[in-house]
Amino acid sequence: MQVSANEVYQTARKACLAAGYLQDRAEDIAVATSWLQCAGMMGCTVLDSLLADTQDKKDIQLGLHLEAGVLQISQCRPAFEGVASIDWLLAADSGAEIQIACLAHPVMFAGLLWQAGQAYQRQFRLVSEALEAPINIPDETVDSVATCQQISGKLVVGISDSAPPPSFVASGHSVVSDAVWTRLNALAMQTYVPETEASRLSGAGAGLVDDD
């Protein structure tokens, strides 16, 4: 079905909240999801897969540590270690890097990097044994994000010395599969409070009939 960018954002945000994500994480993942969706990279499907991964929402405590000025992450979940490590990298001195042993849902992580790069006017550089060449995010095209699907094994992320290229703006309506949309909406529904008679009568502060 055809969905608007804001519908994707709002549905993704609520689905993330229902999955137990913190408010800020839910918002950041939703922004990345909407952007991926508008940029033609099936953001909703990526999110659906991420939210189905039960390991991804187990524990808000972050599995990472600093070692000799390098942030070491054994298992990088985009909404948890991913968000925290991007913040850390943006604050760190020149030359700092993150070393990730295993990256889950690399396209979502790339979406987060893209958003951070645009917001802070920085470009991230990703190096992995599985990649023929380093990936720069954001880049002139969104191909770099799609390439992230190839990442496996150890990944090193740093900040590039070069300025980011002009931003690629993704917006507008896009197509999402009915099954994915139904699952995300079912999750989003869990953020709503079931109605009681008391809430119906007093929760909105208005009566039930306006025939005046």
Partner: peptide, 26 residues
């Protein structure tokens, strides 16, 4: 503050008297 499952109507509840506070808006 919360969103009701009834047509997503925004509502306000009394925390110490009504259910649903775990789903409150931040």
């Amino acid at each position: 503050w919360y969103v009701s499952a009834a047509k997503l109507e925004p509502r306000l509840g009394l925390r110490h008297e009504e259910p649903g506070a775990e789903l409150e808006m931040p």
